[in-house]
Design a protein around this nucleic acid. Structure first.
Lengths: 145, 145
DNA sequence: TAGATTTGTTATGCAAGCATAGTAATTTGA
DNA sequence: TCAAATTACTATGCTTGCATAACAAATCTA
């Protein structure tokens, strides 16, 4: 099995390149790829840290430091949830809302660019296969009978 | 355009999960996902740092520190190239060869597992689309007319 | 062929993943 | 009902991407 035939290798390289591209574009307005995704996932009514982790496909412990930085740079603020006092909700500031719009535009532009070159059918097939691989990966290694 | 319809989002989440899985398995024999890929790409006759960067889809400057660590832990050694004295070739130690075998086995097992669940046709289609997206990403943003 | 540019590498600081550990709030269950 | 377990989060150290800067070797060019 050659590396150029393995699925994992392509996922690694392609995501690395997409991530770099997003970082380069987002650097133009002072954020990163990861902060862009974070902003996009924060709702007006506030989003819990744990929910953000789920949406971003990341461990919750990865977020604290980034949220601290985003709070310092005035993109967000945090408030303890009403119902459950362990839970913290993240809200966008007006400045954060502004940057979120820019981040969304980057994602939309890039995907529209891809959509011009790749048929809807091919894209749907891609996403469906990626979803399948994601499920399989989460179930790996398979229960040893 | 919802996040669940964008290609970038799936690439991010799926690669993140595959990477985590590899890290967890590789931790069992004391290496990481990134070191595993590095080992797999080092040939017996030595591989230049710049060549490694190309094979891994990573900037060459990302490798120095990791190679230092790998040298310290006895996986590799480095030698200045014969022809071009700027170039440094990386070689596996016997210990590195041993770990490379384990890393290769991890990659092979995981891909075989995927191949059981995903048809050859679907996998080839996936890789072909990923290759296309990679090329498009590297060409993004498109030259402004 | 000397000077300028390019190429290959290293060092270093930042970003953002992970894991582990610790705290407080909530839920479970004997 | 109260002790134990679970859940939500934060802090921190490690890893490995990136970018920038520095330097030597190689190549180009006037």
């Amino acid at each position: 099995m050659k590396q150029k035939e393995t699925v994992d290798y392509f996922l690694k390289v392609v995501w690395q390149n997409v991530s770099n591209t997003y970082n380069q574009v987002a650097a133009g307005f002072g954020i990163t790829q990861a902060i862009g995704y974070m902003l996009i996932n924060i709702e007006a009514e506030g989003t819990a840290v744990s929910a953000l982790a789920g949406l971003l496909g990341v461990k919750a412990t990865s977020l604290s430091r980034m949220l601290n930085n985003m709070e310092e740079s005035g993109l967000i603020y945090r408030e303890t949830s009403e119902g459950d006092k362990r839970s913290v909700k993240v809200y966008l500031t007006p400045f954060g809302i502004e940057k979120r719009k820019l981040a969304r535009d980057v994602v939309i532009s890039f995907n529209e660019y891809l959509n011009e070159k790749i048929s809807a059918k091919e894209r749907e097939q891609l996403i469906s296969t990626l979803e399948k691989i994601n499920q399989l990966t989460l179930a790996y290694p398979p229960a040893k009978k």
